[in-house]
Write a protein that binds this DNA or RNA. Structure first.
Length: 849
RNA sequence: GCGAGAGUGGCGGAAUUGGUAUACGCACUGGACUUAGAAUCCAGCGGAGCAAUCCUUGGGGGUUCGAGUCCCCCCUUUCGCACCA
């Protein structure tokens, strides 16, 4: 017998990794097995920063565990990986180190590929996707052209988010708390020409389909729902009527017919509208502002609004013009107010200070009239003074013929009346805005259009794709995009008229690449003349399990949903939603803080692998916390994981000789006539409970930590049993050996998704065949009956003692046994003093005395 | 401010349907082996107390024979949104 052989993780892990690679164990080729169910297991692909960090390891360890589990259960598993390789860091590195972004990226991809392979993840490397490769982005350019043709991509000038440090514009989703999502710099507003994707055209569907995403965390669904921000209300015109002190009318020549459209969700409060507020960016703001002083005020407000997305204090001024409240016929002042957003609703609002906190604050500051039109409930007529603004629903007062109505019906009736008068319309508004995809940077997918002096904006011909990103660039980091300065790129001919034209020099947001990479993985032969095949998509999609960080809840995950719907409408496939189940893993933290260079608490996966091997790192990561929670890094916890793997390895190698030759097909139910040892029955019974638990966990809840701890217990029980048996000179008969071998193999298979190298090795030692041929263990019934059980005895609901009883013992006999306990008798002296008992068979007896 | 989640030993965490709270691991303590250490193994380990016993799942109330789990109020904390009319 080989005793206590050390676990040589380097040797073992290298052995299996080379074997997996050499034999292409995890490559599917074109397998779309008719007999197998499919499972698409996907982890968010990394940006090739150069090094894998613990967050990646966690993400991929989770995905790999699921992929391997599914394979054991007979699924054909698509488990791909790639690199999201366009993006700013490559370009910033180019500026800083005078490197070439393509070369920098490639070398990073190589080193990260090496790291991923060293961690032993079971990827199908044949399907790798590298988004900065022209063979990938050419299709993205094609999608762009098709979207352009269908009005889903367009260009317009607007106020956009600008990050001065990244030197580019940002989409709304990419501004977090007024700061750039990538670098944390304050975002300012700039008016620029930008390309947009018309995601708002899908707002309703994106919202509605969220309900069907039952496999997503509620948190993410709620975040997307709020981001889309649907609200229904009334859009209504107010006439502009006269002006004073420097105010102006829209159309001075005619002097009439001027009107202003506002949006409100509180039509019920319209009788309380005492002023109109328009955004500083509203076209009327300028037109209505005539006097010199007012112009200066307007400029000041615009200036302040552009500096930062954050608003310090409400400010505004009276334009000098008035509007007519169509319901009261009263003249109300028109103000320019900085808190009114131009890109939501109509950019103008009716202000009801009595029933809106913002309007109230503004009205107080500028001494504007406040009229209460809602009171709480008829029952509560005495409303204390100073209770304004009152923002809850209630009963209408001061509202003419609508008095006495309640919020809901009042909204309806007033809206209906406005529609009848032809001055208003019920409308739905979304907070979601179109996705600005232009980036004034080099390292991205070129936008395939040119600007022709004669023809205007002209798309490239599809046959001219890909438009390849040039690489003869000098990076200075100064001024505009380097593409703009590259004459050989910029100067071109118009595809339409052949005349002189200039190329678009903006590149696409890198979130465009990540919006469809998961579709590309389904195509094996990349020289094919299409981005993916309809039948591949039909077979593999939707992704059965997607795993990644929650930070992409409204960026990547919303864009991808949008993109899939667009491609569906462009007739590429019939898919509505890309990701059926989503798991958002928590962060890896150390000393309570996210790992970062500046905090100096980064743990490098490479160093750990060197010291303990990949399996140890993976085991610790999966054991220390359930995947959706943050994971607190603990160096001695890693050592604990290492200890366990050693113990596991030593246990199997120590007993391998005993079990190697045990039968694999022992006939249960007395085929051999051997009596199964009671101790064996017991641990096999415990195993069956763990198999069951592991199955439920591996099919959706993914609390790997509980499976691992149960496996540790199984191994402890096994070792105890063996040690005990040997001490007592116990003999294992054929049935015992068969069952114990089955037991060990089962534990190996249960642990295989987490520590695949170790399990591959010990499985081979025990069976002489590769574990990939094995399947998830079946539960075996050895006829184990627990003869005795412990019954918790409570007195008046308080736990007092445990008594041993026969399995399924009658209540009566358990009461007798309980009364035989000294501890119980202290509380219940006689049977006659028992008022009532509650008995849960084999578990608990509660005596009420 | 609005919305969602979380709060269990010294620490990470377990307890999926209300039924023996603290499984498993880490740390710690004692012991064995050793010249010594490392490694390994064995034992102990929620708190208070010599003990009997009492207390304990953020705090307070409630439902129940019985609550970490269900209901109400409060506190703390994490995350998301934040003038969206």
């Amino acid at each position: 017998m080989e005793k206590n052989k050390n676990y040589d993780f380097n040797k073992i892990e290298n052995k299996w990794q080379s074997l997996w690679e050499k034999e292409g164990v995890f490559c599917l080729n074109n397998e779309r097995s008719v007999n197998k169910k499919k499972f698409y297991c996907l982890e968010m692909f990394p940006y090739p920063s150069g090094r894998i960090h613990m967050g990646h390891v966690r993400n991929y360890a989770i995905g790999d565990a699921i992929a391997r589990f599914k394979r054991l259960n007979g699924y054909s598993v698509l488990h791909p990986i790639g690199f999201d390789s366009f993006g700013l860091p490559a370009e910033n590195a180019a500026i800083k180190n005078k490197t070439n972004p393509a070369e920098w990226t490639e070398s990073n991809i190589n080193s990260m590929t090496r790291q991923l392979k060293r961690l032993g993840f079971s990827y199908d490397w044949d399907r790798i996707v590298i988004t900065s490769d022209p063979s990938y982005y050419k299709w993205e350019q094609l999608f762009f052209l098709q979207m352009l043709k269908n009005g889903l991509a367009y260009k317009k000038a607007s106020n956009v988010n600008w990050c001065e440090s990244c030197h580019t514009t940002l989409a709304n989703e990419q501004v977090e708390d007024g700061k750039c999502w990538r670098c944390g710099q304050d975002v300012t507003i700039k008016n620029m020409e930008q390309w947009f994707f018309k995601i708002t055209a899908y707002a309703e569907e994106l919202l509605k389909d969220l309900d069907g995403l039952k496999g997503w965390p509620d948190k993410v669904r709620t975040m997307q729902k709020n981001w889309i921000g649907k609200s229904s209300g009334l859009s209504i015109f107010f006439k502009i009527a006269g002006f004073t002190e420097g105010g102006g009318s829209v159309n001075e020549e005619q002097g009439n017919g001027d009107k202003i459209e506002i949006f409100t969700t509180r039509a019920d409060t319209i009788f309380g509208a005492t002023f109109i507020a328009v955004s500083p960016f509203h076209p009327l703001a300028e037109k209505l502002t005539k006097g010199r002083e007012k112009k200066i005020e307007l400029e000041k407000i615009i200036h302040n609004s552009l500096i930062s997305k954050d608003l310090a204090e409400k400010e505004g001024f009276f334009t000098g013009s008035y509007a007519i409240n169509p319901f009261t016929d009263k003249k109300i002042p028109i103000y320019v107010a900085n808190f009114v957003l131009m890109d939501y609703g109509t950019g103008a609002i009716m202000s009801v200070p009595a029933h809106d906190e913002r309007d109230y604050e503004f009205a107080k500051k500028y001494n504007i009239e406040i009229i209460r039109v809602i009171r709480p409930e008829s029952g509560l007529e005495k409303e204390p003074d100073g209770s304004l603004p009152y923002t809850l629903p209630g009963e209408l007062v001061n509202s003419g013929k609508f008095n006495g109505l309640f919020a809901g019906e009042a909204k309806e009736e007033i809206s209906a009346y406005a529609e009848k008068l032809g001055i208003g319309k019920r409308v739905v508004n979304y907070r979601l805005k179109d996705w600005g995809i232009s980036r004034q940077r080099y390292w991205g997918c070129p936008i395939p259009v040119v600007y022709c002096e004669k023809c205007g904006v002209v798309p490239l011909n599809e046959s001219d794709l890909p438009l390849i990103l040039p690489d003869n660039i000098t990076f200075t980091g100064e001024g505009a995009s380097p593409l703009e300065k590259l004459e050989s790129f910029v100067n071109t001919k118009c595809p339409k008229c052949g005349g002189d034209a200039r190329r678009e020099t903006d590149t696409m947001d890198t979130f465009v690449e990540s919006s469809w990479y998961f579709l590309r993985y389904t195509l094996l032969n990349r020289s094919e003349r299409f981005p993916f095949k309809k039948d591949d998509i039909a077979y593999w999609l939707p992704v059965d399990q997607y795993i990644g960080g929650v930070e992409h809840a409204v960026m990547h995950l919303l864009y991808s949903r949008f993109f899939v719907k667009v491609l569906r409408d462009l007739n590429y496939f019939d898919l509505n939603e890309p990701f059926e189940n989503l798991l958002t893993q928590g962060m890896v933290v150390k000393n309570g803080a996210k790992m970062s260079k500046s905090k100096g608490n980064v743990v490098d996966p490479d160093e750990l692998i060197k010291k303990f091997g990949a399996d140890t790192v993976r085991l610790f990561i999966l054991f220390a916390a359930p995947p959706e929670k943050d994971l607190e890094w603990n160096d001695s916890g890693v050592e604990g994981a290492f200890r366990f793997i050693n113990k596991f390895y030593k246990t199997i190698t120590a007993y391998a000789d005993i079990f190697k030759n045990a039968g694999n097909d022992f006939a249960m139910g007395g085929g051999s006539g051997d009596e199964i040892n009671q101790g064996v029955k017991k641990i096999v019974y415990q195993l069956s409970q763990v198999i069951e638990k592991a199955e439920t966990e591996m099919n959706g809840r993914y609390h790997f930590n509980t499976i691992i701890s149960s496996s540790m217990e199984l191994l402890n029980n096994f070792n105890d049993y063996m040690a005990d048996g040997i001490q007592k000179g116990g003999v294992l008969n054929r049935a015992d050996k068969y069952l114990l071998k089955y037991f060990l193999n089962s534990v190996i298979i249960i642990l295989y998704p987490f520590i695949p190298h170790t399990c591959s090795e010990v499985y081979e030692i025990l069976n002489g065949s590769p574990i990939e041929k094995a399947s998830w263990p079946e539960i075996k019934d050895t006829g184990y009956i627990q003869e005795k059980c412990n019954i918790a005895v409570q007195v008046n609901g308080k736990m007092r003692d445990l008594v041993v009883a026969d399995l399924n013992a009658s209540e009566d006999s358990v009461i007798e046994a309980a009364l035989g306990s000294n501890k119980i008798r202290k509380y219940v002296a006689h049977r006659s003093s028992i008022k009532k008992t509650i008995y849960v068979k084999n578990k608990l007896l509660n005596i009420i005395a």
